[in-house]
Design a protein around this nucleic acid. Structure first.
Length: 232
DNA sequence: ATGGCCAACCCTTTTACATCA
DNA sequence: GTTGATGTAAAAGGGTTGGCC
């Protein structure tokens, strides 16, 4: 099974014939010179050809078995260090992703709050009857997350400006007519609906809305409009 | 095709030695 | 100086695999 039965007999011959506990009494660490030579060989090839092994053993005054075992142990040590390196790389990648996730989550929260404000602004004129003239202009800043501006001109037409986030993520899609109707209290108003760019609905499905809530994103209110008022 | 043998490897554990408090 | 704890490297032991007959 093992490849050194004969090879080992000589160096520790006085040992192998004695009790197990006394074997290798002469075990010594290899000299710096031997280690240096072995290390440099390991750098070029992590496994030795049998012939090369014999040659190296002869050159270093070691038994071929000792050389084989040194390479074996060296491979194990190298593998262990490699695992450690890989782990560190994975850890760094994970930290990086976690940081990105955190910032995206914050941005998502800001967008939801902006939506809330918009809804309130849209709802108010409806409740108060017809809006007249160039009156309403609300601007709620949320740090550097962009701003929301709603204006109505003299014709009574609403116009929106939400900053970069809306366009980057796509707040509502055309497929969300039900949501628009439910949440905004509007039928298909061509003026209003045309203001919203078609976009990826990945953040606008009903499931997403639920997850917003369950995430506790609506615990805060902004501009004095609690989120739950939005649903009533 | 199958099984035995052998060599080489890997993984785990043991052993001997060095270092340090 | 010695002693025990700890770390490290050399080596042993056992299992697995692949080539050969």
């Amino acid at each position: 099974m093992l490849d050194y039965t004969e090879e080992m007999a000589e160096p520790f011959s006085s040992v192998t014939t004695t009790k197990k506990k006394n074997r290798n009494r002469n075990k010594r660490r290899f000299s710096d010179e031997q280690i240096k030579s072995l290390e440099s060989m390991f750098e070029s090839e992590t496994r030795l050809e049998p012939r090369k092994k014999l040659q190296v053993a002869k050159e270093l005054g070691l038994q071929p078995r000792q050389v084989a075992i040194w390479f074996q142990n060296k491979r194990a040590r190298w593998k262990s260090k490699q695992l450690e390196r890989d782990y560190n790389i994975l850890q760094a990648n994970y930290d990086n992703l976690a940081a990105k996730y955190g910032s995206l989550k914050k941005e998502k929260q800001a967008l939801v709050i902006q939506l809330q404000k918009l809804n309130d602004l849209i709802k108010k004129p409806k409740e108060e009857g017809q809006c007249c003239g160039q009156v309403t202009e609300t601007n709620c800043n949320d740090g550097d997350k962009g701003e929301t501006t709603v204006k109505s001109d003299s014709e009574g037409q609403l116009s929106f400006s939400m900053g970069r986030s809306e366009h980057a993520l796509g707040v509502l899609s055309d497929d969300d007519s039900a949501i628009k109707t439910d949440y905004f209290g509007l039928e298909e108003d061509p003026n209003l609906m045309s203001m919203v760019d078609p976009a990826d609905d990945s953040l606008t499905s009903r499931e997403e809305w639920r997850s917003f809530d369950s995430d506790g994103l609506f615990d805060q209110s902004n501009c004095g409009y609690p989120w739950w008022d939005f649903w009533s």
